[in-house]
């Protein structure tokens, strides 16, 4: 018995040592280690199984969560209730089908005729823990998916491709706390949208006195990873930060907790960075800063000194903003 428990502790020590070794290697190594190959290997093996399981099981999950959303009906007789739930599930399933086809239509329509190539994909798995916001899609390198490709729905930005396996890929959602998306307002003001989990997205504007109002549309700027011109959401609350930036919470267009059919942008559309809602009139920088600086004049001198007022990139408020 003693020998047994000693062996048990030996194995435990071995497993814990292995864990720490893995953590150290992965943490130190970052992108270039062989552990990355290990991840891809796991996704290659598990991915197809997940795909098969998801095909059977996810419609059930969708129906379940739909019924859950409707809530209880109160003090009804049990039989009636059961029948109700059954009918409701059937109805929801039908609605779900119609919604999926609508989503697909919207998605293909969003591609438009600007030369974009968009690959439709279905979400087959979500992140298995409460801290990460990632999903797994049923498309992989065999379908032409590469890391860092932009993922959208017909409504707006979903995120970017993280890891690619032959038959599946994982996507970092824009609401993940590690996500940072280069963004701009319709008037050309630039900033960075970072994820905040289930709390709203936050846009940090580069210019502290940039004109922004609740209801302004926020789009991707198309700087590095993300394709430009994709709507992210609508500005809600605007607060001034002590760090000379402006913090804007954003109500996203996409419902990140109920993703189903998405599109992977294989080829970016031509002229993607040209905003569809670009204002035509461009007033001088002096005129545009007047309404925004009225709130906190003390921050203005240092802020306007640090930025270079290039006329073409000057803030251009829409008629509604002035």
């Amino acid at each position: 018995m003693y020998r047994d428990s000693r062996r048990l502790r030996l194995v435990l020590a071995l497993l814990i040592a292995t864990s720490f070794t893995l953590i150290t290697i992965d943490y130190r190594g970052g992108e270039g280690t062989s552990l990355r190959g290990l991840r891809r290997g796991a996704a290659t093996v598990v991915g197809p199984v997940q795909r098969a399981v998801a095909r059977v099981v996810r419609p059930v999950g969708r129906a379940l969560s739909s019924v859950g959303e409707l809530g209880s009906l109160g003090d009804e007789v049990d039989d009636l209730r059961k029948e109700n739930a059954e009918l409701r599930t059937k109805l929801r399933a039908a609605e779900d089908l119609r919604r999926r086809s609508d989503e697909l239509d919207a998605l293909l329509g969003a591609a438009g005729d600007r030369g974009a190539r968009i690959l439709p994909a279905t979400v087959i798995a979500d992140s298995p823990n409460n801290f990460e916001w990632t999903v797994t899609l049923d498309r992989g390198s065999r379908d032409g998916v590469r890391a860092d490709m932009t993922v959208i729905t017909g409504d707006g930005l979903v995120g970017r491709v993280l890891e690619v396996a032959p038959y599946t890929c994982s996507v970092l959602l824009a609401i993940d706390r590690q996500s940072a998306v280069g963004a701009r307002l319709a008037n050309g003001e630039r900033g960075l949208v970072s994820g905040n989990g289930l709390d709203p997205l936050v846009l940090e504007l580069r210019e502290p006195d940039a004109p922004v109002r609740p209801g302004d549309v926020v789009l991707t700027s198309g700087s590095s990873t993300y394709v430009g011109g994709i709507p992210i959401g609508v500005a809600e609350l605007i607060t001034r930060q002590p760090t000379l930036t402006k913090r804007v919470t954003i109500k996203p267009y996409v419902r990140y907790t109920a993703l189903d059919i998405v599109g992977i942008i294989l080829t970016a559309p031509r002229e993607a960075s040209a905003p569809a809602v670009a204002p035509s009139a461009r007033p001088t920088p002096g005129a545009s800063t007047t309404p925004a600086t009225a709130g906190a004049p003390s921050a203005t001198p240092s802020a306007s000194a640090t930025r270079s007022p290039i006329p073409t990139q000057s803030p251009t408020p829409t008629p509604a903003a002035t």
Binding site: Y27, L35, R39, E132, T136, L162
Partner: peptide, 16 residues
Amino acid sequence: LLLDLLSDHTLGLLAL
């Protein structure tokens, strides 16, 4: 370990 491999965080955390 398998959960670690399928997630985005540092490998080995959930195994530990």
